[in-house]
């Protein structure tokens, strides 16, 4: 066997150039505070980076952005925690993921939050294209919510009905993959409309568990073939989650 250092020099490899965009759209409305979910989410997010870094090749090519809706209406958060206001570059490498403590209050402008996420994705795609950086796969957008979309006054809003076809169009054009995770209190009808093949209704589940499910989904969807239809990617992601669950359960029982 040739020494690996010698071989590395003789047959060099370029640094990873591709990128995988992950965009979180997180509910920070009043209900998240009242239920104590926001504290739980903050605690879970602190440990999530280590979990994500185990997902290959997300660790080397993943970039993550974070949009919140609720507190201060819709905010783009610096996922590295370095900038307190809106960051000049919303996407940071996954290895730098260290989000600030999220605060929860106010109404639930879910639709505006998702729209902002789609805007960020489009901008980053364009930047990467101009920089000659390939996309490893379709950008992944993850919605986490415990509530019902509202207008600015807190009244239940039906504007999500206009958002659903926009998401479908982006999916069929292979521009994004969209996942929705609803915890206790989320409106299942809304989730089903926004993400018919990729929503998870998770009652009585910890936020750590939600993030864990999200990691499994990222691993599966991030490694899917680029030309796979979205429905097939979603189906595979569900299977992957189930498989990860079975392994976790086996590990729990067998120490």
């Amino acid at each position: 066997m040739t020494d690996s250092t010698v071989l590395r020099d003789a047959l060099p490899a370029q640094a990873p150039r591709g990128r995988l965009l992950i965009t979180l759209v997180v509910d920070t409305s009043e209900s998240m505070r009242e239920s104590g979910r926001i504290d739980e989410l903050n605690a879970a997010l602190r440990g999530w980076r280590e979990e994500l870094l185990k997902v290959d090749p997300v660790a080397s090519i993943g970039e993550i952005a974070m949009v919140t809706f609720g507190f201060n209406h819709v905010q783009v958060i610096d996922p590295s925690g370095r900038v307190s206001g809106p960051p000049a570059q919303p996407y940071v490498p996954v290895r730098e993921f260290s989000p600030p403590e999220l605060r929860a209050d106010g109404v639930t402008p879910l639709v505006a939050g998702v729209q902002e996420a789609l805007r960020l994705v489009a901008v980053r795609r364009r930047e990467l294209r101009e920089a000659g950086m390939p996309m490893k796969n379709r950008p992944l957008v993850y919605l986490i919510t415990d509530g019902v979309p509202t207008d600015d006054k807190g009244h239940k809003s039906n504007d999500w009905q206009d958002l659903a076809p926009v998401i479908r169009q982006q999916e069929s054009g292979k521009h994004i993959l969209f996942f929705a995770f609803g915890v206790t209190g989320a409106d299942e009808a809304v989730l089903r409309a926004l993400a018919p093949e990729s929503y998870s209704s998770l009652t009585d589940v910890t936020m750590a568990r939600v993030l864990s499910l999200m990691s499994a989904s990222i691993e599966s969807a991030g490694n899917a073939s680029r030309d796979q239809p979205a429905e097939k990617v979603y189906k595979d992601a569900r299977e992957h989650q189930k498989q990860a669950d079975r392994i976790r359960e086996w590990m729990r029982r067998n120490g």
Binding site: M1, T2, S4, L7, R8, A10, L11, A13, Q14, A15, P16, R17, G18, D56, P57, S60, I61, K136, N223
Partner: peptide, 17 residues
């Protein structure tokens, strides 16, 4: 065999699965 060893290396895996 050097070529296959290199293609199977971590350096290559980091760029694509």
């Amino acid at each position: 065999e050097d070529l296959a060893e290199r293609l199977a290396s971590e350096d290559f895996a980091r760029t694509s699965g």
